[in-house]
Amino acid sequence: MEHATSVPTGNYPAPGLVEPFPDLTPPSSTPGIRVGVLRESGKYSLIACESARAGAQLFLVDGEPTREASRYSVQVATHMHLDISDGIGLEEMLDSCYWRFMNHSCEPNARIEDQQVIAITDIGAGKEITFHYNTTESNMAEPFDCRCGSENCAGYIAGFSAATAGERERLRPWLARHLLPADAAPPGDVRGPATSVAAGAATEVAGP
């Protein structure tokens, strides 16, 4: 992730009580596609090396569980973020933490449910894989001005808690489970419109 979260808002355990982390999905249990990390003009992006249909599981977000968010962590539960381990080198990051290079789009082609990255539109080989940061992050540690160019561009990305009522409703089908109301069903297979950035062949190939 290019930008990540601060501590999420919501109901917290009483002082002195620490909730256990949810069970993590073993990496080997997840089907997926081959992806590549592309660096172009100083910007990294995650590229699909093969096509995927809407609803397909693309890969797993697997990292170090923590209650403290960082610039590159992804929030996967109310009190849990997944981050990159300290001291990890670029080669290992490209091989096992390539999810860190997913960029934001206000018209994404993927969403994150628990640890699963799921296509919400058909994704062609050579297309960038993006998700909307406000669909997983309660609060961004580093809010930013979005310039994705979408007609639905939110303009300022600061986390779901800072989104307008209209934007929250638009994002609802893509929301991670921990951002849904307690009585809401998990999102289903969504085939909404999305914009993808076409890119050349990936320079570094990684996969599950």
Rank of each mutant, 00 (worst) to 15 (best):
D86P: 07
C146L: 09
F21N: 13
P31G: 07
F21A: 13
F21S: 07
P208F: 09
L58S: 11
G89V: 10
L60I: 14
P13N: 06
E50K: 10
I120F: 00
T121M: 04
A110W: 01
N134E: 13
S45M: 13
T203E: 12
A154R: 11
M80T: 14
Y133M: 03
F101T: 11
L94S: 03
G207S: 14
I88L: 14
W174K: 12
N152H: 10
L90V: 12
E113C: 08
M102Q: 10
V37C: 10
G159K: 00
I47H: 07
C106Y: 03
N152E: 12
T130A: 09
L60M: 11
G192K: 04
A69D: 09
E128A: 12
D122W: 01
R191V: 02
I88M: 15
M102N: 02
L82G: 07
S161Y: 07
P173E: 02
A14W: 12
R177H: 11
I123Y: 03
Y12F: 14
F101Y: 15
L17A: 12
P186E: 13
G36W: 06
S73M: 08
W99Q: 08
L179T: 05
G16S: 11
C148H: 04
S196Q: 12
S45G: 15
L94R: 07
P208G: 12
N109I: 05
I157G: 03
T78I: 00
T121G: 05
F160D: 04
M80N: 06
G159W: 01
E169G: 02
N103V: 03
P65S: 04
T203Y: 03
A202T: 11
N134T: 10
E92D: 15
L175K: 03
G89W: 00
R170M: 12
R100H: 04
A48E: 07
E91P: 05
I33R: 08
D189Y: 00
E40R: 15
T66W: 00
H178Q: 11
E169V: 07
E50D: 08
E151K: 12
V74I: 15
G207Y: 10
A141H: 08
S85G: 13
V76A: 01
C97V: 02
G16M: 10
R177P: 00
G36C: 02
E169Y: 02
M93Y: 03
A202D: 03
H104I: 09
R39Q: 14
A162V: 02
T30W: 02
P208N: 12
N152G: 01
R147C: 05
G36D: 00
V76C: 01
E2M: 13
S196Y: 05
L175R: 03
F59L: 10
F59V: 00
E2K: 14
L17S: 11
